[in-house]
Design a protein around this nucleic acid. Structure first.
Length: 490
RNA sequence: GCCCCCAUCGUCUAGCGGUCCAGGACGCCGCCCUUUCAAGGCGGUAGCACGGGUUCGAACCCCGUUGGGGGCACCA
């Protein structure tokens, strides 16, 4: 397959939805896999809801995920402009051609009139427009205009079944007559989405349209429009369509825009890696192999086949997304991990920006042990914070569990063993603590090291103890042990 | 109401007529390793919605039922 051109054409309203980003990802992957082009177009025809901020945010989100576009905003291309708000002339011209060729006609019926006619005929008003204005005479039109009415433009639907072979679902068919003539241009001259979207696709040479399942019922109209567009020489052909399954939330409902778990930013802020998040998104409807589900963007591009996308709706499962992300975090080269984590620590005020040499040394030393405990980047604030503060705030729950009155002796013994330890190294620290606590006090390892861990890190979960102690240094270690000992007394 | 889409473990999926008493992953439950928590290793739990066909043979093909979802704007 060559010459494939896919597109992603969101409207800049509000936040970026995970389902939207999944659609972008699949279009990108399909283009990359086939060696085609990925076009990015902004459908900002709704001035009331669109915002410049949201537009910027859209570009930023695509770039964050690693989706590069060949044509579109900020990169240009031969079919621009790529923002619909700048293409009004184009639509006016195309509508003119279609009207002249008789594919479009002027319609004066109001919704109330249509409904009244349906009711009078004993039909369900839900059926919509009744094609009543199809053959208005010039005299009739003049009469309506004399009343001060301005017409909308409607597309004359063909009297035949509208069917296509969907890339993900196979043949889909709508019976002739089941789709009424639809409005293409408003009375005030403003073109509508069902018109501008195919017009732009045609003009931009789009060959493959991968979009959400919610748009499937509007495909017959697009097909009819395409036929008209070809007739007047605007379109070269009809694109292939592939309708991607819904991304659902809890329950089986389509993931609502109001559901906080649908906002891509939430994942970004928690520190999902772009590759990890893209990997999970790809799993929503696609799989790379029978026994494998962790892969890179490059691997996805190499293997992606739209035809193998599942038609089933997919539930967004945060737990699995985290598990996939954690695998990407663990696979990071150490330097990359440090680089990724530094801004997070700086953002939490734990290290300077840029970090001091000492802070960087500590981070590099603990990184390999922290890495395998990091699911999302923001985890490091809690996991490593104790290494970058003078004193530590002990988590009350951890204290209740491991800083009980009987644990005081452990802390005292640990402090004593470390206060004058010759040689401050991980092995020396390990030996000293084992001697003092396990041998000396006869405590089980669990009973011995639990209190020490809480005293030093403030939590029951931390990187390996001895290494942490070495990095903490003698002074802070002893001070924290003594401070914790006072807590056991209370 | 009308039209359309979907139907394999709790979840995401593999399966494209025999190699499937259905494979992987997440989750969950054990065990091992271990200074904690993870990671890692090993094992376990759990599924072809139902009914008819077609066929020597059906998770896979067809029809129906049921269930779920979506669309029916001068919004995108």
């Amino acid at each position: 397959m060559t010459g494939v051109r896919t597109r992603f054409c969101p409207s800049p309203t509000g936040m970026v939805h995970v389902g939207l980003l999944r659609t972008a990802l699949f279009n990108w992957a399909h283009a990359r896999h086939t060696g085609g082009a990925f076009v990015f177009r902004i459908e900002d025809t709704d001035a009331a809801r669109d915002s410049e901020e949201s537009y910027r945010h859209l570009l930023d989100s695509l770039r964050w995920l690693g989706l590069d576009w060949d044509e579109g905003p900020e990169v240009g291309g031969p079919h621009g402009p790529y923002r619909q708000s700048e293409r009004s002339e184009v639509y006016r011209e195309v509508a003119g051609k279609l009207l002249e060729a008789g594919h479009l006609y002027e319609s004066f019926s109001t919704n109330e009139e249509v409904e009244a006619r349906r009711l009078a005929a004993g039909q369900d008003p839900k059926l919509g427009y009744d094609n009543a204005d199809r053959f208005l005479t010039d005299a009739q039109k003049a009469a309506f205009r004399a009343e001060g009415r301005e017409p909308v433009l409607r597309l004359r639907m063909p009297d035949e079944d509208l069917a296509w072979t969907d890339l993900v679902r196979g043949e889909v068919r709508f019976a002739a007559g089941s789709v009424p003539d639809f409005v293409v241009v408003r009375a005030n001259g403003a073109p509508l989405y069902p018109f501008v979207n195919p017009v732009d696709d045609a003009l931009m040479g789009i060959t493959d349209v991968l979009r959400g399942e919610d748009l499937l019922p509007s495909t017959p109209r697009q097909l009819a429009l395409y036929a008209a567009l070809q007739d007047v020489g605007v379109a070269a052909g009809t694109p292939r369509f592939g309708h991607l399954p819904y991304v659902t939330g809890e329950g089986n409902k389509k993931l609502s825009k109001r559901d906080p778990t649908s906002n891509v930013d939430a994942y970004r802020e928690r520190g999902f890696l772009p590759e990890g998040f893209a990997n999970y998104l790809a799993l929503l409807g696609w799989s790379i192999a029978e026994d494998r589900d962790v892969f890179s963007m490059a691997e996805m591009a190499a293997a992606f086949d739209v035809t193998r996308v599942s038609a089933n709706p997919a539930r967004f499962d945060v737990k699995k997304a985290e598990a996939i992300n954690a695998q990407h975090v663990r696979a990071l080269p150490a330097d990359d991990y440090v680089a990724a984590v530094l801004p997070v620590l700086a953002g939490a005020g734990l290290v300077a920006d840029p970090p001091t040499a000492e802070q960087e040394r500590v981070l590099r030393a603990i990184a390999p042990m922290a890495q395998e405990r990091t699911v999302v980047l923001s985890d490091v604030v809690g996991l490593l914070g104790f290494l970058f503060t003078e004193d530590v705030e002990v988590d009350p729950a951890a204290a209740a569990k491991n800083l009980r009155p009987e644990d005081g002796e452990v802390l005292a013994a640990a402090a004593a063993a470390l206060r004058d330890l010759p040689g401050w190294s991980t092995p020396a620290i390990e030996q000293a603590l084992k001697d003092a606590l396990v041998e000396g006090l006869g405590r089980k390892p669990r009973q011995a090291f639990g209190p020490v861990r809480v005293a030093l890190s403030g939590r029951t979960v931390s990187p390996p103890l001895y290494e942490s102690i070495e990095l903490l240094g003698r002074e802070r270690t002893v001070r924290r042990l003594e401070a914790a000992r006072e807590l056991t007394a209370s």
